[in-house]
Design a protein around this nucleic acid. Structure first.
Length: 674
DNA sequence: TTCCCAGAAG
């Protein structure tokens, strides 16, 4: 019989202290079951108090059950190291572990990703004859899978089969193990297998199965599972609901994801984060930001690091530095810890929002940097055409003993390409394999083709593609085709376009580029052929779309957009001023009209021109303008922007599809090399 | 005592 003292409801720390004192005065504290019960009550309230209580227990009262209790408590309170240490202490006291000891210990190993400790514990469990315990076997599977050794997990699972002891939880552990180890196909195969063997998956199994469908982007499989969940009337708790939302989002079906999200009875921070990052991942930054706004305003859930990273990536995508800075200050206010990941994401956001100086500041002040920090900063500088700075950082990184990886080289090579550093690019490319032992991937080949093509070394670029050891992708041929546009090479362009049309038949950009190349040479018949081909294949040109931020608010302009009539008057005025300064419209890039209705496709109505005029009109003289464009800037707009920066004495920053242009006093940071 | 949801650089 336990003391009635311990049957009382304990709800405060004070209750615990009182009971502890009473157990001492009554001497019941020396009775191990009382002590154990008190310890487990204490653990659910305060870990440190429980540890104190444990330490002050007289050694003669220590027993296996007491140790099991403290070990389990430590694991539940995320102190796996202390749990393992307590176990060692237990062995030193010559107390033997039992079948309740190992599940907690194995869980601790899973948390620590300590495969070797886990293996040692497995060995001990075998020696103690405990390895055939269902709970221990289940946690062995979980531990091995968490530590990345899915084969050992499977061995444990398979051995259990011989004894016909696999229950639902065991199946689920193995399925989730596959999902955690990027083996979604094996996970789904095991779900089918368990059903064949007469086990019925439950809510927990479904969570892992949905996650596997998301990883595979297998919408039809995911839908089947969702239907099964509805038909079998499973209870859709937050976790299962979030798993469904996440599955739809990963499969790109944001509409279904949102429907499920809206129908959830309860939404925690994970559910919100899944919805927000789902939008962000699918390039729906506007909706990601709206959802974040709703979370902050309408829910009682506080954004955490994951939420913040998702919303920052949405800010980066849309160039929304206003919200980005707000989030930056939110991190301060909410006292979120500035982890390396979080700072890397902030840095990326600032770089992609045109605020490279802010990015650099974060980078410089980071107390600790990882490879991602260096890569992000190098890529950011590359994006801004600051090739020399990017290469300087690359040297600095190596002198600090940080080994570059394959992504670092994508950054430095793209820095060379944006800054026209051909020889440096060649040298880096050669060093990558020779000195750093990194085999070039598709992305690196793409960068090299880009470097050579932009520099006008088109035959060499073409040979480079032909010599690739793998099938070249669209990016490689696309870089060559863009180079052909800049350097007016029809022959190579036609070959590149042919390959591109095979690889990316629905990419409208190919047709537009090719047509521009023909137009540049006044080969109107060929332009017409491209137009017809495009029409036949049902491909429509993506409309140019630009936005300008005025007082923190986004204003969007689509090519030929007349929704801001006042900016048209300003437009005429601006062009007049530019003409006086010597600007002549360059119409060589006649963009093909798919049908005659699309009259908006003349250079004069390009979205970036309309956006800049709106910006000039709505901001104070001298204010810097930031313009974001979904496509690449055309030559005429580039030239017009140079004039505008001089005539109106404005700094204009443009983020186009591939990089930043900074126009100051009649010239551009890209030095007309883009 | 065992199983489950969100996550960065290209």
């Amino acid at each position: 019989m336990l003391s009635p003292l311990l049957e009382r409801r304990i709800s405060t720390f004070k209750d615990l202290q009182q009971i502890h004192a009473q157990l001492i005065t009554t001497g019941l504290i020396h009775h191990p079951p009382h002590l154990t019960k008190l310890l487990s009550h204490t653990l659910s309230n305060s870990l440190s108090y429980a540890c104190t209580l444990f330490k002050h227990t007289h050694p003669q009262h220590y027993n296996t059950i007491l140790y099991n209790t403290i070990i389990r408590g430590l694991v539940d309170h995320n102190s796996p190291e202390h749990a393992i240490l307590s176990y060692v202490e237990m062995l030193l006291q010559e107390l033997l572990p039992d079948r309740f000891t190992y599940p907690s210990l194995l869980k601790a190993c899973a948390q620590l990703l300590a495969l070797n400790v886990g293996k040692a514990l497995h060995g001990q469990a075998v020696r103690f004859g405990l390895d055939c315990d269902l709970y221990i076997e289940t946690t062995l599977i979980t531990m091995y899978a968490a530590c990345g050794d899915v084969n050992s997990a499977r061995e444990v699972f398979d051995r259990m089969g011989d004894q016909k002891t696999r229950n639902l939880v065991v199946w689920t552990s193995m399925i989730s193990g596959y999902v955690k180890n990027q083996s979604p196909r094996e996970a789904l195969a095991l779900v089918s297998e368990m059903e064949r063997q007469g086990q019925v998956p439950d809510e927990v199994t479904m969570v892992s199965a949905l996650s596997a469908c998301g990883d595979l982007k297998d919408l039809s499989c995911g839908k089947k599972l969702h239907l099964h969940i509805e038909r079998s009337k499973m209870k859709v708790c937050v976790v299962l609901g979030t798993a469904i939302v996440d599955m739809y989002a990963k499969c790109g079906d944001l509409k279904s994801a949102r429907q499920v999200f809206d129908a959830m009875h309860e939404r925690n921070v994970v559910a919100w984060s899944a919805m927000i990052s789902g939008y962000a991942r699918n390039n729906r930054s506007g909706e990601a930001i709206k959802t974040f706004d709703k979370m902050v305003r309408e829910s009682d859930q506080k954004p955490n690091e994951v939420t913040i990273m998702a919303v920052l990536s949405a800010c980066a995508q849309s160039g929304n530095s206003t919200l980005g800075s707000w989030v930056d200050s939110y991190i301060h206010k909410a006292r979120l810890s500035r982890t390396i990941n979080l700072q890397n994401t902030l840095m990326d956001m600032y770089a992609k929002c045109g605020r490279i100086d802010n990015a650099r500041q974060i980078f410089n002040y980071m107390p600790e940097k990882d490879i991602v920090s260096w890569n992000t900063m190098i890529a950011g500088l590359a994006l801004h055409g600051l090739g020399e700075q990017a290469l300087a950082l690359f040297s600095q990184m190596q002198s600090q003993g940080v080994r570059p990886d394959d992504i670092t080289f994508i950054g430095v090579l793209s820095a060379c390409s944006h800054a026209g550093l051909v020889e440096e690019g060649r040298r880096l490319y050669a060093d990558m394999t020779a000195k750093h032992g990194i085999e070039p991937k598709l992305e690196h080949y793409g960068c090299m083709v880009d470097i050579l093509s932009r520099a006008g070394l088109l035959p060499e670029a073409e040979e480079f593609i032909e010599a690739m050891p793998m099938e070249p992708n669209g990016a490689a041929w696309g870089a060559l085709l863009s180079g052909c546009r800049v350097h007016n090479n029809v022959e190579i362009a036609e070959r590149a376009a042919k390959h591109l049309m095979r690889i990316e038949p629905n990419n409208d950009g190919i047709y537009v580029l090719l047509s521009n190349i023909f137009a540049g040479r006044k080969q109107w018949e060929e332009v017409k052929k491209v137009r017809i081909l495009m029409h036949e294949r049902g491909i429509r040109k993506t409309p140019g779309c630009s936005s300008v931020i005025v007082d923190g608010i986004f204003h969007e302009f689509i090519v030929g957009d007349h929704s801001h009539p006042e900016s048209e008057d300003v437009y005429d005025y601006v062009i007049q001023r530019l003409r006086l300064a010597g600007y002549v419209a360059d119409t060589s890039e006649v963009v093909l009209n798919i049908d005659e209705e699309e009259k908006g496709d003349s250079v004069s109505q390009h979205s970036e021109k309309m956006a800049v005029c709106f910006g000039l009109m709505k901001t104070k003289p001298g204010d810097e303008l930031l313009i974001m464009k979904n496509l690449r800037m055309c030559g005429d707009c580039h030239s017009a922007f140079k004039y505008i920066s001089k005539v109106f004495a404005r700094v204009i920053v443009v983020r186009d599809r591939s990089r930043f242009h900074r126009f100051v006093d009649g010239s551009c940071s890209c030095r007309d090399y883009w």
